[in-house]
Simulated scan of single mutants.
Amino acid sequence: MENLIRKNIQNLVAYKVDAPQYEIIVNANESPYDFPMILKRKFTDEICNTDLNRYPEACFPELLKALSDYTGIPTDGIICGSGSDELIAMINQAFVNPGDVVVSHSPSFDMYNIWANISDSRHIRVPDLPGHLPDVDGLIKAACDNQAKLLYLCNPNNPTGYIFPKQDIIKILDAVPSLVVLDEAYIEFFGESGVDLLANYPRLLILRTLSKAFGLAGIRCGYALGNKPVIDVLYKVKAPYNLNVLTQKLAVLALQNRDKTLKNLAEIKSEREKVMAVLKEFPNLTVYPSGSNFIYFETPLAEKIYEALLSRNILIKRFKETGTCPESIRFSMGKPKENQKILEIIREVVYNEA
């Protein structure tokens, strides 16, 4: 059997995620607020009037129209996928040959590396500068020296929360030969998108999702914005019915009712600032600025904090030490009472160890 498996897949560790069964879950950057009940009821009525024995719309025209209204990008400049994950897979399938180079800053979203490995490409990860500032010149050099096919920019970045200034994005676009993938999964928490750059940069592709700010991680709906020639290439590798009818209808409902689905943005950002202010007062924690719905901090107490929270039925994200990063924690914003409870436990650990 082993000789039948592609060599680059044999040593690949499967990305398996166990269903979390915890009282408080702040490990996956999800919204702590569920989809509004009034819209759930409307969705239920729509599904009762939908023929589920038929395949869904293969090119999701109603969803593209709703996304166009939201982003200002024409429908022929948009493609949808089952979360950003599927879109990253499609990008690799369409553009990357075995042996090609893919560049990203590091640390960043794991799926860039996973799909680089699956596509049998060479992934160059450019470590952040001190203070978790991406090495813009290093990224440009890596992409140019290696004629990289793809260059990923995660903005705001997961897991560090860093924001790329617009001038740095432009500097990279002006310099590299690559398709630049600007991942804006968390852009609603920051606000300054790179969508306006699409008009002048044909090799720019922007990834978005409804999983974060819209609170719809459960329906798996992501989308990419780009110029028509790039989007047309992605349609060549898209599965015919990659978004089921339930996902499409719920996504349209969310986009058409943005006043309801995005109403908690201000509170989440306010909680982020409050929690960050408290964490900065604790010893042995290095807290970094964030433009997202989570906070990232490095600490030698990461394992003890993680275990203490786990023992209280709370799941947070812990990163083990690597060659370039010390032990760290990513803390997704929960509801105010949840955040307060987590802070109390972190305080206990920090001051017991001081």
Rank of each mutant, 00 (worst) to 15 (best):
L207K: 00
L173F: 08
P134S: 11
T247E: 14
R41T: 09
L216S: 05
M1R: 13
F189Q: 07
L52R: 10
E344W: 00
P36I: 13
F95P: 10
A143M: 01
A142L: 06
P283T: 12
V136D: 04
G291V: 13
Q248I: 12
L262P: 11
A94Y: 06
H123V: 08
S328T: 03
G291E: 07
F35D: 03
F164D: 03
D168E: 12
E267W: 00
G215R: 02
K228Y: 07
I25M: 14
A14G: 08
Q248D: 09
F109Y: 14
F109K: 14
I124D: 00
Y223T: 06
E23P: 04
P98K: 06
G77A: 12
I346K: 07
D76V: 09
I268L: 01
N155Y: 10
L129E: 07
S82W: 14
C325I: 12
Q147H: 10
L301C: 07
Q10V: 12
G291T: 13
F60M: 13
Q21E: 11
T324K: 11
M333V: 00
I124P: 00
V287G: 02
I5F: 09
F297Y: 10
G131F: 05
F95D: 06
Q256I: 09
S31R: 01
V13G: 09
I342W: 02
E321R: 15
L265M: 06
I316M: 03
I73G: 01
N244M: 11
R272G: 04
P202G: 11
P130E: 02
R258T: 15
A199Q: 14
I268Y: 00
D259G: 15
T261C: 14
R208V: 09
K236G: 07
K171Y: 04
N53M: 13
D232N: 12
L210V: 04
V287P: 08
L52W: 09
G291H: 04
V245L: 05
L255G: 01
K141E: 12
P165D: 08
P56H: 06
I5S: 00
V245E: 11
S106Q: 13
K65R: 14
M333S: 03
V136Q: 01
K320G: 13
L151A: 00
L179D: 03
V237R: 00
F297D: 05
T44F: 12
N293R: 07
A89G: 10
V180I: 08
T160Q: 00
Y22I: 09
D145W: 00
L133F: 09
C59N: 10
G334M: 04
T247I: 05
Q10F: 04
